[in-house]
Design a protein around this nucleic acid. Sequence first.
DNA 1: AACATATATTCTCTATTGTCGAATAATAAT
DNA 2: ATTATTATTCGACAATAGAGAATATATGTT
Lengths: 111, 111
Amino acid sequence: MGYKFLTRQEELLLLAIWRIQDRAYGMAIKEQVEKVTCSRWSFGAVYAPLSRLLKKRLVFSIKGEPTPERGGKSKVFYELTDEGKKALLEIEKISRASWLGIPNLKSGETE
Amino acid sequence: MGYKFLTRQEELLLLAIWRIQDRAYGMAIKEQVEKVTCSRWSFGAVYAPLSRLLKKRLVFSIKGEPTPERGGKSKVFYELTDEGKKALLEIEKISRASWLGIPNLKSGETE
DNA sequence: AACATATATTCTCTATTGTCGAATAATAAT
DNA sequence: ATTATTATTCGACAATAGAGAATATATGTT
């Protein structure tokens, strides 16, 4: 029970949080992953995995104060736990190993 | 319906097939991913995604002849389609973009 | 032939994850 | 009060993850 590795979404979300570093909250994380992946992410695709990461203690959250702007509903900020960083390092290692020395994939190319 | 990206398992299996290059069949693919990931993969974890990849036409299969050895049940060989190669290149691109310029994750290190 | 042995794949089942967008909450402006 | 704006939660359903028993198919033994 529980997956063997970080799922793709988990990895991308953790990386987005780590990249933002400070005051990473849902909507900003959504924008970040959308930018990196060049594709639209629905709310569910962001918040659902986020709450799972929370449950698994790969991130922790801090309730923010409302900002003094129209619609400034208080945000929830996320940060990586040490476990979260470790999980990222692990998946990076596996990913690197899996691609190491892989023959050229470009079809039609001989070299 | 269908996932936005190649799932982790799909990526690892496609890479295993591509690495083996010739006569890549279930058990050999299983061994390959186990080697790369340093963990045990159940039959279900190999054959289920494999048949999904088949359905999505990211791989195609060729029924092999039984080999002249005890228990030499005929194998099913898998090869990547051009779509499969393209999917790998795409996920590699996203993965690279998502890791590019990521601040050091090693906890306890300042630099 | 009957039976044991060995290899490869299929199948079944449950848990977890993926995805979407409507609904809700909370705040500021008019 | 009412409206506009931003952020998050929720509910429903589809798809994937994962384990391992069951099945299929071949060879070796007697």
